[in-house]
Simulated scan of single mutants.
Amino acid sequence: MDQPIKSLHPLPARESSVVAAAAYAGGRRVAEIMVEEAGEWSRRPGHVVWIGLHEPSLELLRRLQAEFGLHDLAIEDALKAHQRPKLEQYGDALFVVARTAQMLDGRISFGETHLFVGHGYVVTVRHGASTSYTPVRERCEASPKALLEGEDFILYAILDFIVDNYMPVIETIQAEVEEIEDCILAETSTQSHVRRLYQLRRDLLRLRNAAVPLVEVCRRLEQPGLPGINASMQPLFRDVSDHIRRVQEEIESLREVLAFAFETSLMTGQAQQTEITRKLAAWAAILAVPTAVAGIYGMNFEHMPELQWRYGYLLVLVMIGAFCSVLYWRFRRNHWL
Rank of each mutant, 00 (worst) to 15 (best):
W41V: 01
W41I: 01
S42W: 02
S42V: 03
R43C: 09
R43S: 09
R43P: 08
R44Q: 14
R44W: 02
G46M: 12
G46K: 13
V48K: 05
V48I: 13
V48A: 10
V48F: 04
V49D: 03
V49P: 04
W50T: 03
I51T: 11
I51G: 02
I51F: 01
L53A: 03
L53T: 04
L53C: 03
H54M: 07
H54Q: 13
H54W: 04
E55V: 01
E55S: 06
P56V: 02
S57D: 09
L58C: 05
L58A: 14
E59C: 00
E59P: 00
L60W: 00
L60T: 01
L60S: 00
L61W: 00
L61T: 01
L61F: 00
R62C: 04
R63I: 00
R63C: 02
L64C: 05
L64H: 03
L64A: 01
L64K: 03
Q65G: 13
A66N: 09
E67Y: 00
E67A: 10
E67H: 00
F68W: 04
F68V: 01
F68I: 02
G69P: 09
G69A: 07
L70Q: 03
L70S: 05
L70W: 10
L70R: 03
H71F: 04
D72C: 10
D72W: 13
L73Y: 04
L73W: 02
I75L: 14
I75S: 06
E76N: 07
D77R: 05
D77T: 06
D77Q: 05
A78N: 08
A78H: 03
A78D: 07
A78K: 03
A78Y: 05
A78F: 05
L79Q: 12
L79K: 11
A81V: 11
A81G: 15
A81C: 12
H82F: 15
H82C: 05
H82G: 01
H82D: 14
Q83L: 13
Q83D: 10
R84K: 14
P85F: 12
P85C: 07
E88V: 13
E88K: 09
E88S: 13
E88F: 05
Q89P: 11
Q89V: 11
Y90F: 15
G91N: 12
G91I: 12
G91V: 11
D92P: 04
D92L: 02
D92R: 10
D92F: 02
A93G: 06
A93M: 15
A93H: 15
A93N: 15
A93S: 14
L94H: 10
L94N: 04
F95P: 08
F95N: 06
F95S: 07
V97I: 14
V97L: 09
V97G: 13
A98M: 03
A98K: 02
R99H: 11
T100P: 07
T100S: 12
A101Y: 10
A101D: 06
Q102V: 09
Q102C: 12
Q102M: 15
M103K: 07
M103V: 14
L104I: 12
L104C: 00
L104N: 02
L104V: 13
D105W: 00
D105R: 12
D105I: 01
G106D: 09
R107M: 08
R107K: 13
R107Q: 13
I108T: 07
I108N: 04
I108D: 02
S109V: 08
S109I: 01
S109G: 10
F110C: 08
F110E: 11
